[in-house]
Amino acid sequence: MNTQMTAKPEIEPQKTKEQEEWLRLKEGDREAFAAIFHQYYKDLVLYAGTFISHQAEAEDVVQDFFVKLWTEREHISAVKSVKPFLLTAVKHACLNALRGNGIKLKYGDVGVMAEECVTRETEDYILYSELNERLQEALKLLTPMQRQCFEMSRMQGVKQTEVAQRLGVSLRTVELRLAEALKVLKEELKEYLVLVVIFFLY
């Protein structure tokens, strides 16, 4: 089994709170269950969506998983970190669901994932909410104009010429502000999202 941990130097206060919640869940505390559900549901459904591309099915799998988590709460073990546990469990649930129905895997053509990477994959996995949070934080560092240009062109997919029109500035200005925004974001998100470059900021 994989013993490598990607331990981060700082102690996140969230973690102890999460571990406590986990223990309370084990003891049958509905509030703790609800808290874990609300924190992770959306992220887990989106994660399930990478295996099962129909939303209702993905939600089904995640909901079934949570029901199981509750009914079998006494048997769950203490965990260092909740996220990889949930991700791994949901992944297995998805694969089982797929196997039962003969659904195609989205990345079935790249069957290169070793068993070892699977664990690590879930440890390293960035959740939608995490990325979003980081992005929102980083966006705060931009000037209003840089931010508008970035949001319109990169997040809403508006053409640069149209951005210029809407903001009442020249195309050149849009290009410049966008370049500045990208520079700031690349710098800000660098350590966390090595590869944001390709998809988000490219």
Binding site: D124, I126, F199
Partner: peptide
């Protein structure tokens, strides 16, 4: 492999199978 996995992770977040706003938790 790790690098690829991270890319795939980001790609999934960037183009999710369905809109995150549509998930009613």
């Amino acid at each position: 492999v790790r690098y690829f996995t991270r890319c795939r992770n980001l790609h999934d977040l960037y183009s999710p199978a369905f809109p995150p706003e549509g998930i009613d938790e």
